[in-house]
Design a protein around this nucleic acid. Structure first.
Lengths: 205, 205
DNA sequence: GTCTATAAGAAGATAGAC
DNA sequence: GTCTATCTTCTTATAGAC
């Protein structure tokens, strides 16, 4: 294998991520995955045991990184721009974009997230809630500090709206298409700025 | 009297909608559909020709009704509350809820929508864009009238955020869960009111 | 760790009787 | 319009050689 320093396991994860984003979990066969990763069909079951466990591992690899960045940027914001809602929202939104443009297949990950709540895959939803629920709670706490008068239930509604808007925008489903002359990075930056402004106004209302 | 007055075709549509919401388009087999609808496996291909066409028809049945209500309520709003952004947003948001509680299976349809943009099904996206794009453009026009200074690209970003927040909230994925003492209808009404307020502030910002 | 080969079954679609 | 039976292809998963 002259072409790569990536292990068989990493190549499977990368190929699976791209294909899951394109065709869904159930719409992607392990044969497609192993074919794209240029490994043998039996390697998936050797390294991951089952298709379901492969799905969880694809998630974990990106979510761990994204959560780490979100919490790090949130902590930085509380030092540099204390009490400023826009800084908290940037800490929530921008790492999602950073992961999305991280490398080939990162953009695909955003669609995998969108998929996670559309496919009423209860095992996966529970996995996400258990593993990453504390990140959302941390942001709820930080937003509450920026907007002292906001009651708790209303805050949770607005966090849900923010999450939905972020997911939708990231999945390139809507009216907005990246214009030909605009780079992917510039487009994502524009998306982040627009969303932060929109959500900040909504949360403060 | 109960279920026998539905035709084979309608029973297939109802069963397909529920299963698509639960397991996705690709994760649902025609065998599951015909088994739940209690019709023969060959009936799907007789009535719909193919699985892809069945998917489109599931959408058409609900989207036609939802679009009709949205445009009707929008027209009413332009008479009763001209220039009022909240009225336009209510015309966009509330019919989605009306469809969601329309009858058995309406709630499932909301998840089918969420799924439609997560499953990067290009045939379906094109179908939706062609058949219902004019509704979105009508709302863009109405919002622009309410917020004269808003530039067009910014308006489209915000419409995408609204659509995402609506979809996410409707699919019951987020932090907000319906409390035990609150009826489904009251919960949906609360969701609509919160979203209208949130989005109105964001769009006006 | 990676391979070939294959088991065991599910998928969409169709032909043709009634 | 609805049925049974079947074709062809694809799926996950495993057994066992190297």
């Amino acid at each position: 294998m002259a072409s790569t320093q990536f292990s068989t396991k990493d190549r499977i994860l990368g190929a699976a991520e791209e294909l899951f984003a394109q065709h869904g979990f159930m719409g992607t066969s392990l044969r497609q995955v192993t074919s794209r990763a240029d490994v043998n069909i039996a390697a998936v079951n050797y390294h991951f045991g089952s298709k379901e466990n492969l799905i969880n591992e694809v998630f974990r690899r990106r979510m761990d990184e994204m959560s780490r960045q979100r919490l790090g940027q949130l902590e930085q914001a509380s030092k540099d721009r204390p009490g400023e809602l826009e800084a908290v929202l940037a800490a929530f939104v921008e790492p999602a974009l950073a992961v999305a443009r991280d490398r080939q297949g990162g953009a695909a990950f955003i669609r995998v997230i969108a998929r996670a709540y559309a496919e009423k895959n209860d095992g996966l939803r529970q996995f996400l809630s258990e593993q990453y629920g504390h990140v959302l709670r941390e942001f709820a706490r930080a937003i509450a500090q920026c907007v002292p008068g906001l009651e708790k239930e209303q805050l949770y509604w607005r966090l849900d709206f923010l999450s939905g808007a972020l997911t939708y925008a990231m999945s390139d489903f809507g009216l907005i298409k990246r214009p030909a002359g605009v780079s992917e990075i510039a487009h994502r930056k524009r998306a982040a700025d627009e969303l932060i402004r929109f959500a900040a106004a909504g949360i403060k209302s």
